[in-house]
């Protein structure tokens, strides 16, 4: 029996069983709250919206981790910067039609956040590049504190609003399917995730710079031997992570109310998503993000919304303990000696 569950088929049987048990538990808890099928659809859709943001952030974590071995705690702050810079530029009295103004604001915010990301790497990670990864991780914590306090100084402690992309106003289009509600902004978020993934694929697979980045992730010394500068790749990875984070923050802006400390929880959740994907794989990060969003939203929906974050971190610990290589597989890393 034990042997069976160690084997490949046994593991699939076990995983399927667990998934069905989880669904059954979910339905049982939901029936106690008198949830109808459309409620589950709604919870799943909302979960996929949040999950897309987690996926964008998880991509940022994966890019930085693979190239530098650093867990970049500042990832959440890039999301905040993206949203805040975008709405600030959007509020400037530029003589442009509203739609163009929003587009200009979005592009300018992404560019600025990318530059900030590169600057962060140059100023903090690069001078300490010979330190162990734990020291570098603590440095990113310091960066997080500084950026958040800077945002508080620049934007104050009040939440802001960003107009919805479709209507350019605070009210968004709402699609109704029976009693299921879908905001137009949700479609923008999903569309953005898809576009970003396609662009990222082309960048990593079909440009010299992207290939150099991948080479650096696979073997830094080998990459150096063929003439790739790891320092520059480290900067590129931070810039890329900052851009991904900023894009996430901008598309999320209209559905939340951007505030200076929004990055903290988002950053931690994005990290959980990255761990679910194994921390080293791009598809894993996307699947992890979506799965985390849906799972935590369903779990919170059938029990109590205040426990939403608890579920995310319970998932984190469970994944680390039972499947450190991530849900998509690959070889385990977490219990090997990493130096």
């Amino acid at each position: 029996m034990r042997q069976f569950f160690r084997g490949k088929i046994g593991k699939i049987v076990l995983a399927t069983g667990l998934v069905f048990a989880a669904i059954a538990l979910c339905v049982w808890l939901g029936s106690r709250q008198r949830l109808l099928p459309q409620h589950y659809v709604q919870l799943t859709l909302d979960g996929m919206r949040g999950g897309s943001i987690y996926a964008l952030m998880a991509l940022g974590f994966v890019v930085v981790y693979r190239v530098t071995g650093v867990i970049n705690f500042a990832q959440g702050e890039f999301v905040m910067l993206g949203a805040m810079l975008c709405l600030t530029i959007h509020k400037l009295p530029l003589p442009l039609p509203p739609a163009l103004k929003l587009i200009v604001a979005i592009i300018a915010a992404i560019v600025l956040a990318t530059l900030i990301g590169a600057a962060v790497e140059r100023l903090t990670i690069h001078p300490a590049r010979r330190s162990p990864p734990v020291t570098l991780t603590i440095i990113t914590v310091g960066v997080t504190i500084t950026l958040r306090a800077g945002a508080l100084l620049a934007w104050g402690a009040d939440p802001y609003v960003l107009p919805a992309f479709s209507t350019l106003a605070l009210e968004d289009h709402i699609f109704r399917f029976g009693s299921v509600i879908l905001q137009a902004q949700t479609l923008w978020i999903w569309g953005t995730l898809i576009v970003v993934l396609v662009l990222l694929y082309f960048f990593l697979e079909h440009t010299i710079m992207g290939k150099a980045l991948r080479a650096c992730a696979v073997n830094q010394r080998g990459a150096q031997l063929v003439g790739i500068n790891p320092g520059r790749m480290s900067m590129l990875s931070f810039a890329l992570a900052a851009a991904l984070g900023a894009i996430g923050g901008i598309v999320l802006g209209p559905v939340t109310r951007p505030i200076y400390d929004m990055g903290l929880m988002l950053g931690l959740k994005g990290f959980v998503a990255a761990i679910m994907g194994g921390l080293v794989s791009v598809p894993g990060a996307v699947v992890g993000g979506l799965l985390l969003g849906v799972t935590e939203n369903l779990a919170a929906g059938v029990t109590n919304p205040t426990y939403k974050s608890v579920f995310a971190f319970v998932i984190l610990i469970a994944i680390l303990l039972f499947r450190p290589q991530g849900i998509l597989g690959g070889t385990g890393q977490a219990t090997e000696e990493v130096k």
Binding site: V272, F313, L321
Partner: peptide, 23 residues
């Protein structure tokens, strides 16, 4: 169970634990 994990992974598991207790 948690101390089977190494380095960054251990840090993250303990992070999760701390956040759960706090919530």
């Amino acid at each position: 169970p948690i101390l089977r994990l190494k380095g960054n992974y251990l840090a993250m598991a303990t992070l999760g634990l701390g956040v759960i207790i706090h919530i």
